[in-house]
């Protein structure tokens, strides 16, 4: 294509692009950037919401460095992300692989496995979860049958986080759907060829499914990591907002919320939010860089 044509097209694109982007841009500037800028400003202030903010410079940053509960909440959140995300993705992938072969009742299974994800942040979740993991709940009833006295999963600081991770794994519906979609895209002939070459199911999974699916795994990974760093609802509902017992389920966003709304310390909470944004951005960037080494591109 001649150079003049390109520039003519580009010029026309500029105008069209701005029209198409207008709603998004208005939203970005008014609803997102405005409040973001305000929260950045607030993170350098002492702000109770009941009185106007007071500029305190870097005080909040200093507090971030010395706040032990915050450091603990980072530990909790990182554990949740590093354990919960791979676990949930593994389960989602396993179920998707099992469900992928053309089998009867596929739509039914898919819907049932998705059901827990629909429940989301329902009020009833806390009660339901207690029915399972309470010290007199289903899990311990089953363990009692074989003579084991189980702990109070939710109420023991040693196991509370695990039960929330399990709750997270339980809602594997969305990544499962995305995996199913990805599996559909892998041409059947690859598998046929591999079978002819004498590859077993495990080998076929490792040699074909995993590499072919790696872009989708990557997509899920990125979104799940972002989502898990911001995890709030499940911990909030199960612990009644306390992050207990003994801060063992005190997620970063939960602490942020307690500091901001509970202690009316919105300046500090804003500083916390910016710290979290920084952490997520670094994680995502590292992931993008690392993806060059393991995400398979067809072309």
């Amino acid at each position: 294509m001649a150079r003049t044509t390109t520039s003519r097209v580009r010029k026309r694109d500029d105008r069209a692009a701005y029209v198409f982007l207008l709603p998004w841009f208005v939203g970005l500037v008014v609803i997102t950037i405005g409040p973001m800028a305000m929260s950045l400003y607030l993170s350098f202030t002492d702000y109770s919401m009941l009185a106007p903010p007071n500029w305190v410079g870097l005080d909040n940053v200093e507090r971030l460095l010395t706040d032990e509960r915050l450091h603990n909440s980072l530990r909790v959140t990182f554990t949740y992300v590093l354990v919960g995300v791979p676990l949930q993705l593994a389960v989602a992938l396993a179920v998707a692989v099992v469900l992928n072969r053309g089998m009867r009742g596929l739509a039914f299974y898919r819907s049932v496995f998705y059901l827990p994800s629909l429940l989301g942040g329902s009020v009833a979740i806390a009660v339901l979860w207690k029915q399972i993991f309470g010290s007199t709940g289903l899990v311990n009833d089953v363990l009692a049958l074989v003579g084991i006295a189980g702990p109070g999963w939710i109420s023991d600081p040693r196991t509370a986080l695990s039960s929330i991770i399990l709750l997270h794994v339980w809602t594997f519906g969305a990544p499962m759907i995305i995996f199913l979609a990805g599996l559909r895209q892998i041409p059947e002939m690859y598998y046929e060829a591999a079978t002819v070459d004498g590859a077993g199911p495990l080998q076929r999974f490792r040699r074909i499914t995993l590499p072919m699916l790696s872009p989708i795994i990557f997509f899920n990974l990125i979104l799940q990591i972002i989502g898990s760093f911001q995890a709030f609802t499940q911990a909030f509902i199960v612990s009644g907002g306390s992050g207990g017992p003994s801060d063992s389920t005190m997620f970063f966003t939960l602490l942020l919320y307690q500091r901001g709304f509970g202690e009316l310390d919105m300046g500090y909470a804003s500083a916390m939010a910016w710290l979290l944004l920084l952490i997520i951005t670094i994680f995502t960037a590292v992931n993008f860089i690392a993806s060059r080494y393991w995400v398979f591109h067809e072309s």
Binding site: K130, S155, G244
Partner: peptide, 12 residues
């Protein structure tokens, strides 16, 4: 037990 006590911290 400790488990029951903490569980009831947020029980309705």
């Amino acid at each position: 037990t400790p488990e029951l006590i903490t569980e009831e911290l947020s029980a309705p």
